[in-house]
Design a protein around this nucleic acid. Structure first.
Length: 894
DNA sequence: AATCCGACAATCG
DNA sequence: CGATTGTCGGATT
């Protein structure tokens, strides 16, 4: 949500009638809280200690005020103990007529009429977490420049509303780029010292009255060779001829008011010499885009991460070639020939980071090789110029401003590379006029024809596709993105709707690479594409004619922006099949492999598809019961006691309720559990009635069409598992990756498991021995999805595909006994919880011992001895899996 | 009817 | 405030 959307949402609240109970949730929604978070806020996460109050941790603390007493209520909020512990960014009290609010961190207060909430949205932004974005900690000049440019841009738009329209946006963006180029050029010596600003500020008037005409005249002059500037003011004669696409085409400028003119003056006063084109580009991208501005470079790819992509993709190989040719003029000349034929193509180029860094690295190598060639051949003649043109750099970018920025950043990178060249050889190509620009296309990469953007090069020349396309999980895509996805995938994929948006780039790159020889590609992507269900959907097609050359296993996203995106990434590099050694990186350390599977393990691809029922005849595993209740059917121990304290007859409708956390940390929650027959009785009890009614409302308002009919039976969970006779075995669906064994727990029939556990109802104990084994953990860790890098247990992907040998009855008895040993050992350590017991640092020796015995027992049943390591475990499991799938296929499938 | 996911989201120390 | 670790319910099959 960007600030404008927050403004709109708050204005809507201000216009609607005031409801003291609903206001806080509407406010939370307006300040960008996730729907699920609001649901939780209605239930357990509201920690307010004031009557009718709602405290959203770290966001806001609200309390309704009596008419005319908002100040008193604000004082109560200020003094609330809970306000002190959970540090809300905003305190807000209202009686529906006036509003009193405060930022506790600064003490700033706001008093306004209720219907002015929208107009004061700036004050409420901290509730949306916006204050947590500090300026990007980067090169100070980049930060300053970005700030000045953003203000200049805003001021120009304010003074010229017509320039903010779709039709003129491109012109506006071009204007900004031309100004930036001129300010840069006059600081680095492309223009004579301060020539541009001297002329502008001489002729534009004290308050910028003539700035518009002056800038238009200057830019027109720069697009015409000197001496051909008839009709332009006399003073433009001394301006340099720049051209190069940057000044070609329509030249216009908006009107500068006093404010805009002042920012222009401040911006040109900065020292632009120091700017860093690889990062600067991503930062000024935020200038034109308020959404980007709130994210402040959250998603630009850091230089170390770019190097993780382009190093293995082409730089490492070039370096090896240079090393081998170091004393051989012919070999060095071959390197130069190769360099001059390389294309780099980033189909999600943003402001051009990958292209700029690639260009810089290639130019640095070229300079090194030229120097060496000169030394080896004793040729004192300096080479005349670089053979790496920026026209060999291609990009697609959806945002016009960013695309223009990318072109500019490459001009600047070219200038800087030429300066480095001059330091070695004492001469440089003339900076002006500019030559052709990089080939940056403004458009939607999933709909563009990549071959038209980056035409296939001559034989023997190479194209390297690299970048960091956007990640959007299947559940979070916009309608437009879904539309892109449908158009792209429907021809060749039977199912594709579960794929992340980023998969579109992988697929298109694969199509490009399999058609044109000499193409390799590598992207930074979310690690989801190499996990769980996406693997068997995406990769069989991508690797039809190609193979994975290198990969970087999961690493946490990081750049220098203050607020980092919360995502775990991988890098996968793909090209045509050959016998080369593959490289699998982890934390920057490479391991060599004969093949890399899309699960990013050193193994030939085997795709595990979700199956139901078990391919190996294991007992059926279900989900627990899913409430989808807005938090109303679930009770904390305190809430349970409160209800039962006042209404003893409510007891029969309340059951113990376990999710993942409760299993792992030994906590308890309760839930309202009412059968259809009892529904009438339950509704007689006021607190139950109130909650059940709230469930009905929640479900009626659901966006999910499948949820709405369940509003008719609000006393019931959205989905309920089968009735348990004796016991249930619970496996939490998401748990920490640090534990050496997966958590599993056996509970009695009286307990309700939530959908956060997988459940084996009334299953034999030997199932526990399987789940608690190292073998099973290794399988789950490989073939199931992950949440960041934590284990995510799935019945269809993990349990139903888990390969087991045909066990004899005696073996099953032995496994059941082993399972009991594990459980007994845990009980003997009560009240330690699973979280305590399986902490890798603190796991007790006796528990380790029973697990080791369990592993040895089970593994011996597979191969007659324990496995040596996880690689051996996985190889055996994949072999058994593949054999089973083949056998079932031969029988006609299931 | 059943389930996999989250450029996440909440909590802990 | 960074490290740790798993809620919740939608969208899709």
């Amino acid at each position: 949500m960007n600030p404008t959307e927050i403004y709109d949402a708050l204005a809507e609240i201000a216009a609607a009638p005031f409801d003291p109970n609903e206001f806080p949730f509407a406010f939370a929604e307006a300040t960008d809280a996730a729907k699920a978070a609001i649901s939780k806020l209605r239930g357990s996460t509201n920690k307010s200690d004031l009557p009718g109050g709602v405290l959203f941790n770290r966001k806001f603390h609200y309390a309704p005020a009596l008419a005319g007493l908002t100040d008193v209520t604000l004082e109560q909020l200020r003094n609330s103990k809970k306000s002190k512990t959970s540090k809300p960014a905003i305190l807000i009290a209202t009686d529906g007529d006036t509003v009193a609010a405060e930022h506790p961190s600064s003490g700033d207060t706001l008093h306004c009429r209720f219907d002015e909430i929208g107009d004061n949205f700036g004050f409420f932004l901290p509730a949306a977490g916006k204050e947590r974005y500090r300026a990007v900690e980067e090169n100070p000049i980049d930060v300053k420049a970005t700030g000045k440019l953003a203000r200049l841009y805003d001021a120009l738009i304010t003074a010229n509303p017509d320039w903010a329209t779709e039709a003129r946006r491109h012109e506006m963006n071009q204007l900004m780029m031309r100004l930036i180029f001129c300010m840069f050029a006059e600081d680095v010596g492309i223009f004579p010292d301060n020539q541009f600003s001297r002329l502008i500020f001489t002729h534009a008037g004290d308050r910028g009255e003539e700035a518009q005409a002056t800038i238009i005249a200057a830019f027109r002059a720069m697009n015409l060779p000197k001496g051909k500037r008839d009709g332009l003011p006399f003073w433009t004669a001394e301006l340099e001829y720049v051209n190069g696409g940057l000044f070609a085409g329509q030249i216009d400028a908006p009107r500068f008011d006093v404010v805009a003119f002042r920012y222009l003056r401040e911006a040109s006063g900065l020292n632009w010499r120091e700017i860093n084109p690889d990062i600067f580009g991503s930062m000024i991208q935020s200038v034109a885009d308020p959404k980007q501005r709130s994210e402040l470079g959250m998603h630009y790819t850091s230089v170390p991460n770019i190097m993780k992509v382009i190093g293995p993709l082409f730089l490492d190989d070039l370096d090896a070639q240079i090393h081998n040719a170091w004393d051989k003029p012919k070999g060095l000349q071959q390197v130069l020939d190769r360099l001059s034929g390389i294309r780099v193509f980033d189909p999600a180029c943003g402001s051009g980071n990958f292209l700029v860094v690639s260009y810089r690295e290639l130019r640095a190598r070229e300079t090194r090789v030229l120097k060496r060639l000169q030394d080896v051949t004793a040729n004192t003649q300096a080479p005349l110029f670089s053979a790496i043109p920026i026209t060999h750099f291609y990009g697609i970018e959806i945002a016009d401003f960013a695309a223009e920025t990318a072109k500019l950043a490459l001009f600047i990178a070219e200038y800087q590379a030429n300066a480095a060249f001059a330091e070695v050889f004492g001469r440089r190509p003339a900076a002006l006029p500019l030559k052709d620009a990089a080939n940056i296309r403004t458009g939607n990469a999933l709909r563009e024809d990549w071959e038209r953007v980056c035409p296939p090069p001559a034989d023997g020349q190479e194209v390297f596709i690299a970048g960091n396309p956007p990640f959007v999980g299947s559940n979070f895509q916009t309608e437009d993105q879904k539309c892109d996805r449908d158009l792209l995938f429907k021809a060749e994929f039977k199912s594709y709707k579960n794929l992340d948006y980023v998969a579109g780039w992988i697929y298109l790159a694969a199509r490009y690479a399999e058609k044109i020889s000499g193409v390799s590609f590598a992207f930074v992507t979310t690690n989801s594409v190499s996990q769980g269900r996406q693997v068997s959907t995406l990769w069989p097609r991508v690797l039809q004619n190609l193979e994975i050359k290198f990969a970087h296993s999961s690493f946490q996203w990081k750049n220098n922006a203050a607020a980092n995106a919360a995502v775990i990434c991988v890098i996968v590099g793909v090209a045509g099949k050959n016998s080369s050694t593959k490289r699998l990186f982890s934390d920057g350390i490479a391991a060599e492999a004969g093949a890399i599977s899309p699960y990013l393990i050193p193994m030939s691809p085997v795709y595990v598809e979700g199956a139901s029922p078990s391919l190996f005849d294991l007992p059926r595993m279900d989900y627990g019961s899913k409430p989808a209740d807005g938090g109303n059917l679930v009770l904390s121990p305190e809430e349970m006691e409160e209800i039962v304290g006042e209404h003893a007859d409510a007891q029969r409708f309340i059951r113990k309720y376990l999710g993942s956390q409760e299993v792992v940390r030994g906590q308890t929650r309760y839930c309202i559990w009412v059968s259809d027959q009892e529904a009438h009785d339950a509704l007689e009890i006021p607190p139950l009635r109130k909650r059940i009614e709230a469930v009905r409302r929640f479900r009626q308002e659901s966006k999910n069409p499948a949820t709405i009919p369940t509003a008719a039976t609000p006393h019931r969970f959205w989905f309920t598992g089968p009735a348990v006779q004796k016991h249930a075995i619970l496996v939490p669906r998401v748990t920490s990756e640090r534990r050496p064994y997966l958590p599993v727990e056996k509970v009695g029939a009286d307990v309700i498991s939530s959908d956060l556990n997988q459940v084996l109802y009334d299953a034999p104990d030997w199932c526990i021995a399987l789940i608690a084994s190292r073998l099973h953990l290794v399988w789950i860790a490989t073939v199931c999805g992950k949440l960041k890098s934590d284990f995510r247990y799935s019945n269809t992907l993990g349990w139903n595909t888990f390969p087991v040998p045909k066990f004899t009855d005696a073996q099953l008895d032995a496994l059941s006994a082993s399972a009991l040993n594990i459980l007994k050992c845990r009980w003997s350590l009560y009240p330690k919880t699973i979280a305590d017991l399986y902490d890798p640092e603190k796991m007790p020796d006796d528990l380790r011992a029973v697990h080791r015995e369990n592993d040895e027992l089970l593994e011996t049943m597979y191969i007659g001895r324990p496995f040596r390591n996880d690689t051996e475990r996985l190889e055996k499991l994949f072999k058994l899996y593949a054999a089973r799938v083949k056998a079932l296929g031969a029988k006609g499938g299931r």
